[in-house]
Design a protein around this nucleic acid. Structure first.
Length: 585
RNA sequence: GGGCGUGUAGCACAGCUGGAUAAUGCACCGGCCUCCUAAGCCGGAGAUCGCGGGUUCGAAUCCUGCCACGCCCGCCA
């Protein structure tokens, strides 16, 4: 409703100063109405009471009378000290349907790093929250018009890949299955998918590392590998890559099914081998807050910069090698060279680390990135843990979602052929899974429940998808019936003396579409836009109920143009949150 | 022990830069397919906004104390 506010503010300011009030803070006081029924824009009049020596209710009444008329203003009501203003539906329609209202927001170059999971095993639902959140941010920024690079930071040199590489070199399939005999066997559906296969090697190695016998030798061997990788040993790094790349490919296959893709993969080891990390450590050593431990390890005293709790941030070990966070800082310095805005999506367990990295960047005269943190997904039985078998793999969830969706399609549309059912159920299943996760705010601890993920009713992706297919169906029918409908002109509105509830509801919802997108993007809160999409779909359904676009074979051009605008907003919005915009379902 | 976060109807969740009768979905009760796709629409019922204080004309929202849960507090990643 920014467009309405822009028109109203000068008018309200005039009315207010005519009454002797101070209009200087008006912009922040004139707000979108909390109560959707009451109006589009509201001015609470309580703060003026003292200034004007009048009751708020009376001030609201006076303002309502003093407000000059304008084509944008539909209704003005003074209620309990609030001045409520509703936009004129015809004005809304004209503004929405005229393509002239192009918003020219500044285009930013944005680098979004997300997921970056260790390539040692398949995604479970918990780890996938990062990818779904991150990819939705990528999509929403693009919808907003920004240039976005979606980036995966590949941890190709840590202990986890070292363990995987060691296991693949020292164990065979028989030994692995022997060690994992008490665990559930691999789901036969994922035989041949490297993330599911190789994680068993990793798990077997983890078991061996726990055992008393021989554990020390394994530990030494792994440790040697880790150190070699940290020193940029090319052979070791190559062996690591050979170990993890098929796993990563498998993980990316899963994400691809969810419509998640990356523009670039950047390997952690790059910053070691190209010398950035050692140059960085030298630079950090020059800082005032640098400190040196007894064994020669280096740290920054971030307590001196206000960090509470643990104040020493170690960036160099006693043996001179770097730490994960050090490499992350080098990575950030590199990332900053190529964008205006930097966004990272991280689990809540990385909060302290991110704080340390951000403060160090500031110390070097660089900006901190924006970080979107999310809480972990739990299962009703408790924490997700691979070791206890308390885990839901994304691959399994997607299979199940698709199967459930297929069952629904078969029941609802018995005449559809197998291929159509497959297409629809795949789209419905994956969209439902994404939306189920994206619609809740990231900081909320999320409990995964099969019945919620597989709900295809109100509040879900299929609900939005269904409204969109209705709009598509109408567009197809209109096309068959009358070919091209002439583009919108204000004359189309002249027969609309009174607009019905469904039409007004949809116009109002369309009017806030851009505002909602902008807010979700600027605050990095995709769930706000997900909520708006549900509202938009709901508003479209009300419009569909009240406004028959085709009546006795005749197309109402005004209704049709509104429907088409809603269809466009729905489609773009769905793509923005990763819902597949099917045209039939 | 310290830091950060969460706590809203039976369940899940929105609202948190202070504003009205706390929004939505599921589940529950009742209605709507001779009419553009009923994965829909309409109506009903259901909330001491964790608990106690405080600031304010006004608090789910801000401050403070307490309680519960989660995450973190490695020269790991």
């Amino acid at each position: 409703m920014k467009m309405l506010k822009a028109v109203l503010q000068p008018l309200v300011a005039q009315a207010l100063s005519d009454l002797g009030g101070d209009a200087s803070n008006l912009s922040s006081m004139l707000q979108a109405s909390r109560e959707w029924d009451q109006g589009d824009i509201t001015l609470p009049c309580f703060p003026f009471a003292k200034m004007l020596g009048k009751a708020p209710a009376a001030i609201a009444e006076d303002l309502a009378k003093a407000l000059s008329s304008h084509e944008a203003i539909g209704e003005v009501h003074a209620v309990n000290g609030y001045l409520n203003i509703k936009a004129a539906p015809a004005w809304l329609a004209t503004n929405l349907l005229n393509p002239s209202n192009s918003h020219n927001a500044e285009i930013r170059t944005v680098l979004i790093e997300h997921t970056s999971a260790n390539p040692n095993g398949p995604f479970h639902v918990g780890r996938a929250r990062n990818a779904i959140l991150g990819d939705t941010l990528v999509r929403l920024h693009r919808l907003h018009g920004n240039h976005v690079t979606a980036e995966y930071y590949v941890d190709d040199m840590g202990k986890q890949v070292a363990v995987l590489a060691w296991a693949l070199q020292h164990l065979d399939a028989t030994r692995v299955e022997e060690l994992l005999s008490e665990r559930e066997p691999i789901n036969p559906a994922w035989d041949g998918k490297a993330d599911h296969e190789r994680v068993r090697w990793y798990q077997a190695a983890q078991i061996l590392r726990q055992e008393a016998e021989g554990a020390q030798e394994i530990e030494d061997a792994i440790s040697t590998l880790v150190h070699a990788s940290e020193n940029g040993d090319v052979d070791v790094l190559n062996s690591f890559e050979a170990a993890y790349q098929p796993v990563l490919d498998g993980m990316l296959t899963t994400l691809g099914r969810l419509g998640i893709h990356f523009n670039r993969f950047t390997k952690e080891s790059e910053f070691v081998t190209n010398g950035d990390v050692s140059r960085l450590m030298d630079e950090l050593g020059q800082l005032k807050i640098n400190g040196i431990a007894d064994n020669g390890a280096n740290f920054l005293d971030l307590g001196a910069r206000g960090l509470k709790g643990k104040t020493e941030f170690f960036y160099r070990r006693g043996d001179g090698s770097s730490l994960y966070a050090t490499r992350d800082i080098a990575y950030h310095l590199w990332k900053w060279k190529q964008c205006n805005d930097l966004i990272n999506v991280l689990g809540e367990d990385h909060k302290l680390q991110a704080k340390q990295v951000g403060m160090t960047l500031n110390e070097l005269g660089e900006r901190s990135p924006e970080v979107v943190f999310y809480s972990f997904i739990k299962l009703p039985e408790g924490k997700m843990s691979t070791r206890q078998g308390n885990v839901v793999f994304m691959d399994d969830l997607l299979e199940e979602a698709q199967a459930q969706a297929a069952a629904v399609v078969k029941e609802l549309r018995p005449n559809y052929d197998a291929e159509t059912i497959q297409t629809i159920s795949e789209a419905v299943g994956t969209s439902a899974v994404r939306f189920n996760i994206i619609k809740v705010s990231p900081e909320k601890g999320f409990t995964f429940r099969w019945e919620d993920a597989l709900t295809f009713e109100g509040g879900s992706a299929p609900f939005v998808m269904y409204s969109h297919t209705r709009a598509c169906s109408i567009a197809r029918k209109v096309e068959e019936l009358s070919g091209d409908v002439p583009s919108f002109t204000p004359q189309h509105l002249q027969s609309e003396t009174v607009m019905n509830e469904g039409m007004i509801g949809l116009l109002r919802c369309l009017a806030v579409h851009q505002d909602r997108l902008e807010k979700a993007v600027s605050e990095h809160r995709p769930h706000l836009f997900a909520g708006h999409l549900l509202q938009l779909a709901n508003a479209y359904n009300g419009f569909y109920r009240d406004c028959h676009i085709i009546d006795e074979g005749v197309v109402n051009p005004f209704y049709f143009h509104v429907s088409e605008l809603a269809r466009t907003f729905l489609r773009e919005g769905m793509e923005g949150v990763g819902i597949v915009p099917l045209e039939t379902m």
